[in-house]
Write a protein that binds this DNA or RNA. Sequence first.
DNA 1: CCAAATAGTGCCAAAATGTGTCACCATTTG
DNA 2: CAAATGGTGACACATTTTGGCACTATTTGG
Lengths: 239, 239
Amino acid sequence: MTVRLRHDAIVRTLRRNGTSTVDALAREVGASRRTVLRDISALRDEGYVIHSDVGRGGGLQLDPQSMQTRAKLSVPEVFALLISVAAMRAAGNLPFSELADAGLAKIEKALPADKVKDLRSFLGCLHIGQLSPLQDLSDMGRMVPELLPAFETAFLGRQFIRFDYRDARGRQTRRQVEPQAMLILPPLWYLVGWDPARGDFRHFRMDRISNPEAVPDTTFRRRHVPFDADVCPYTDLQT
Amino acid sequence: MTVRLRHDAIVRTLRRNGTSTVDALAREVGASRRTVLRDISALRDEGYVIHSDVGRGGGLQLDPQSMQTRAKLSVPEVFALLISVAAMRAAGNLPFSELADAGLAKIEKALPADKVKDLRSFLGCLHIGQLSPLQDLSDMGRMVPELLPAFETAFLGRQFIRFDYRDARGRQTRRQVEPQAMLILPPLWYLVGWDPARGDFRHFRMDRISNPEAVPDTTFRRRHVPFDADVCPYTDLQT
DNA sequence: CCAAATAGTGCCAAAATGTGTCACCATTTG
DNA sequence: CAAATGGTGACACATTTTGGCACTATTTGG
C-alpha cells in the first residue's frame, strides 16, 4: 500500500470511528504502530488537526473541519471560478465570502506564477456596475462556452476578437473589435470593444455573441475606457 | 531533488520552451534519460497531456490547457465556494459557467461522501428569487463570518438557531427560530425561519444578523416553506 | 501509590522503492 | 540508409520507507 493510500485510510478510519487508538489504526491499515505514528505526524504537517489523549481511554481524534480536499483543477476552470466569485462578490454582498476568498486564494497560490499574472490582468478588465431597472431582460440567452478561451486569448494576447452578433432587433452581423474590458451590470455581461472602423467604443451583450474567435493583430492598443461603473472588485486577493 | 520537485521542473521547462527533447530535459533537471521518461509517464497518468513526436526534429510538447492545480481546500471553504457559485448562476446568466461547474464538480468529487450529502442537503435549502426594485439597499451591511459554521450546524443538525437581529428600524432583539431555508433576492440574502413563539415564518436579512449560534433542540421539524421564488438552482451537479 | 493503557521519540537493520546504465525497438526525416 | 528521436525492459545500485525495539511521559482505574 502506498503512503498516500494509507494516509487516506487513516483519515477515513478516524472519521468513521470518531476516536481511535494508534494500535487499532495500525491493525486497521495493516501497518506497524511506528508507521502509523509517523503518518499521523505527516498528516498534522499537512494541516489536519488531530487531537490526542494519552492514558487509559485515550486515543486520536480528527477535527472534521480540518479535512482537506485535493481537487485538481485545470487552468481554465480556475479562471472561470475566480471570475464567477469575483463578479458575485462585486455584484452584491456575499455571505460566507471570507471562506470563499480563502479558498480562492489557496487555488490561486497553486497556479503557476505566470498564470497568476495572466489571471490578475484578465480580472483587471472586469468592471462592475448597476443595471438600470428599465432594461429589457426577456430575451436573455445562454452564453456560448467558447467565450472564455477566446476572450482569454484576445485579452491576454492583445489580439482582436471577431464574432457574430445579434443586436436588439435581431439583426445578425459579423464584428471585429479590440477587446478593452468586460462590463458586468448584473445579470447582464458586456464585452466593451473599440471598433476601429467606427473609431469608437461599442458594448456587446455576451449572451448575443456567437462564434467568437481571437485574431492576431499588430495595431492593438489599450485604451482608457470611460466608465462611471466601479472598477474591478478583485482587490482583497491582490496582495 | 525529490520526485515532486523534478516533476514541477519538467513541467516548467516544457511550458517555457514549448517543445523539448527527452535528453534536453534530462540535462535540464539533472536526471537520467530513463528517469525523465518515467516522470513523463507519471505526469501523463496524473492528467497532463504531453504530445510526443518521434524522429528528427521531434520532442515533447505539453498542452498548456491540461495543466492542473493542486489546491487543498478545507470543507468550509468548499461549502462557501459552492454556495457562492450556485447563487451566482441562479441570480443571473453567468458566462463561463460550464467551466466553473466542471471545476466545482471536481472539487465536489474530492469531498468525502458524507460531506457531499451534507452539501446537497444544505444547498437544497437555498431558494432564489428576484428582488422587487422598491427595496431600500442603502443600509446594507457586511455579514459576519460566523454565519456559515452556525448555519451549517443548525441546518444539517436540525437545530435551532439563535442570533441578535437588528430590524429595519434599528431595534436590536435576540431571536430563536427553526432554520428552514435561505432565500436569495440578489443582492440580499435572507434566513427563513419558523418562529415557534409566533407560530409563523419570519425572514431575517443576513447582513443584520450577529452572534449566530446553533442550539440543540428536540422539537425541530422541517416545514414546507411557501415560496413563489424559484427553487434551488443547484440541479446540474445533482447527478 | 501502582499498574495498565495510552501517545510519542530515537535508533538501526531490513524491506521497498526509485534511479542510472545499457541494450534494444519503432518511427520519422533528410 | 543513417541519424535523431520517443519508448521499454532488465538489472545493479542508491535512497527512502518501514518495522521492531527500547525508552519516556502522561493519564486513569483500582
